[in-house]
């Protein structure tokens, strides 16, 4: 990644389990510009890389602001940000990148934030307010003490456009129908938050006939890094001709097991080679470390516990 060195100018506990970090350049030069919805990769102490959305006003060039939720049972990225990083420390980050841009549209923008998912949406609210476009921000949190940026939002010029919802929203209770009902046909929806929250928001919008080009989403998972979407494909058993679909979020091993076809596994992560299977047709997408580069390039065998397919179908010698 093209990296920047930044200094932690401020670290503030802004809500229960949430710390905000203000990152500034080390040489006083302006930081690269960013758009609302952008994130940076942060090389977190401990060797992990984590993505955090920028949540300050995108008009600012003297700082980047990120907010980090402490995830107690994660792999340690957020814990290190909370417990190790302190004011004055240097961090290496990527330049901002944007996978969640505001659409170039004039209708009303509906922003639905769940928990720490407020970060990119707050940045969008700043931008929308700045360019004078209509928007409403609904901010769901388990409780007021867990809602970051309450004071900043209340003091902002757009505080009238923000609604807080502190009612254990992750149980599926919030009435998204009521929030979406008043929106016009040219409205766009932006959502970020825990997966369950976003799935509920998006399902509701789709059920009301919102087309996908009006739905904008940023999945974050606080811990594992963003995975470029895996696709679905199918495998065929050479012995019987049976074709078995493999869903995007499913391993080949799991898809086969679901159909009663069992392959012996051990490590389940492409290290040991126990499940090595011959490939007769199709191109595997190798994700293992067991096979050598040359063996992978031959494409005549793969490890179904972790590897996937570049072609639509793999014919397996089983």
């Amino acid at each position: 990644m093209e990296s920047l060195r930044v200094r932690v100018a401020r670290k503030d506990q802004i809500a229960l389990d949430i710390a905000a970090f203000e990152l500034v350049s080390t040489d006083g030069m302006p930081l690269p510009a960013f758009e609302a919805g952008s994130h940076v990769d942060v090389a977190v102490p401990g060797g992990l890389t984590r993505q955090y959305s920028l949540c300050n006003d995108p008009g600012e060039s003297h700082r980047y602001q990120i907010a980090v939720l402490h995830v107690a049972d994660g792999r340690g990225g957020s814990r290190a940000m909370h417990e190790v990083v302190k004011e004055g420390d240097l961090l290496v980050i990527s330049k901002p990148r944007n996978h969640f841009p505001l659409a170039n549209a004039h209708g009303h923008s509906l922003l639905l934030a769940g928990g720490i998912g407020i970060t990119p949406l707050l940045c969008m609210a700043e931008r929308l307010a700045h360019i004078g476009r209509a928007f409403t921000l609904h901010y769901f949190a388990r409780s007021a003490e867990r809602a970051a940026f309450r004071d900043r939002i209340r003091a902002s010029r757009f505080s009238d456009h923000v609604h807080f919802h502190f009612d254990e929203p992750f149980t599926g209770k919030p009435d998204f129908q009521a929030l979406l009902a008043p929106a016009g046909a040219d409205a766009h929806l932006y959502t970020c938050g825990p997966k369950g929250f976003m799935d509920a928001v998006l399902a509701c919008a789709r059920s009301r006939g919102w087309a996908d080009d009006r739905l904008h989403k940023e999945y974050f998972s606080a811990e594992p890094s963003r995975i470029e979407g895996d696709g679905a494909f199918e495998v065929q058993l050479a012995s019987s001709g049976r074709v078995i679909p493999v869903a995007a979020d499913q391993t080949v091993i799991a898809a086969l097991a679901a159909q009663g076809v069992h392959i012996e596994t051990s490590c389940e992560q492409g290290v040991c080679g126990t499940c090595l299977t011959r490939v007769l047709e199709g191109e595997p997408d190798h994700r293992d470390v067991y096979l050598t580069a040359a063996e992978q390039a031959a494409n005549d065998q793969f490890l179904p516990c972790c590897s996937r397919a570049k072609s639509g179908r793999l014919v397996l010698d089983i």
Partner: peptide
Amino acid sequence: ARPVLLAVDGGPVR
């Protein structure tokens, strides 16, 4: 002789 391996074992296996 059949250890259950972890992600860190890529080198030893190779």
